[in-house]
Design a protein around this nucleic acid. Structure first.
Length: 277
DNA sequence: CCGCGGGCCTGCGCGC
DNA sequence: TGCGCGCAGGCCCGCG
């Protein structure tokens, strides 16, 4: 479930539950996630107070009052649930991490495919951590605009679709929102990044911000899994213009085109050849 | 610099 | 009903 809007939805769900609260105990039931979970993580955060929940790219950061930050990435299939502490019988086979708060609230990290990441670092050294060192610009920051995007695209001999998926360029855009943003900007996913002039770059930058903002407002997209920590579904999947809609009619008024699926860099892209150029 | 193939894992929907 | 297959929201590596 996890592109920027889904991760931001999780962050917003966790913040009121966790901010200012004490961690009682952390249980790590499987250490073999995408990278090994550090053996000292549970002990490092035990008894600490959570000061903030932040997001950088597709990562959730849980800051402690002790200059330590937990780093959580949901991978492809990761979910976060908020509930009450229960017994062993209540746990599912893919509930890998349990964070028990003072007072009985339990945060559960569930991830069938185990592509997720759980790590920690000193808060004041976050930007030098391997997860963050090579990240590009945040598309919802005010500094992100067409001028910036055009500069990033300058001379790049690669299609816009794979350009947008590159986390060292722009962070948080994944396979769904790349297709959706390109449709809104009326740009073909096959167009070379270097062909962006001021007009097209401005359109694309605005489309990216718009799609991500609308998806956050919808509570993210829920395909197989819920996106929200209370178990509710986001509903942006009902607003997809092109994603997973091959063969359907383009929703752009008076366009009349038919949505196509192509494969780029090994991943599906969806677009309307009629209105996206 | 770029695309490709492969890998990491499990689950789901499909056609047979 | 069961089985094999392709596919899936992310990201990383080596190769050519």
């Amino acid at each position: 479930m996890p592109e920027l809007p889904e991760v931001e939805t999780v962050r917003r769900g966790l913040l009121p539950v966790l901010q200012g609260r004490l961690i009682d105990k952390i249980q790590i039931r499987r250490f073999d996630l995408r990278r090994p979970v550090p053996r000292d993580l549970a002990q490092r955060f035990k008894g600490r107070r959570i000061t903030d929940i932040r997001r950088r790219a597709k990562y959730i950061l849980i800051d402690s009052d002790d200059n330590a930050s937990m780093i959580l990435h949901l991978g492809m299939s990761g979910r976060i649930g908020v509930g009450e502490k229960g017994g062993e019988a209540d746990l599912g086979p893919h509930d890998h991490v349990l964070i028990d708060m003072a007072g009985g609230t339990r945060i559960t990290f569930t991830d069938p495919r185990r592509f997720g990441i759980l790590d920690w670092t000193n808060t004041d050294q976050l930007e030098s951590h391997v997860c963050f060192r090579h990240l590009g610009i945040e598309p919802l920051e005010p500094t992100f605009d067409g001028v910036r995007l055009m500069a990033l695209a300058h001379g790049r001999a690669r299609p816009l679709k794979t350009f947008l998926l590159d986390q060292s360029v722009i962070v948080g855009v994944g396979n769904i929102y790349a297709s959706e943003a390109l449709h809104q900007a009326r740009l073909s996913p096959r167009r070379m990044a270097r062909t962006l002039g001021p007009c097209r770059a401005g359109r694309l930058a605005r489309a990216i911000s718009s799609v991500l903002t609308r998806a956050i407002a919808a509570g993210g997209s829920s395909l197989r899994d819920h996106a929200q920590v209370n178990g509710e579904l986001g509903y942006f999947q009902h607003m997809f213009a092109v994603y997973d809609r091959a063969g359907a009619e383009c929703p752009r008024p008076a366009c009349g085109g038919v949505i196509r699926r192509i494969v780029q860099a090994g991943r599906s892209s969806f677009y309307c050849p009629t209105c996206q150029r």
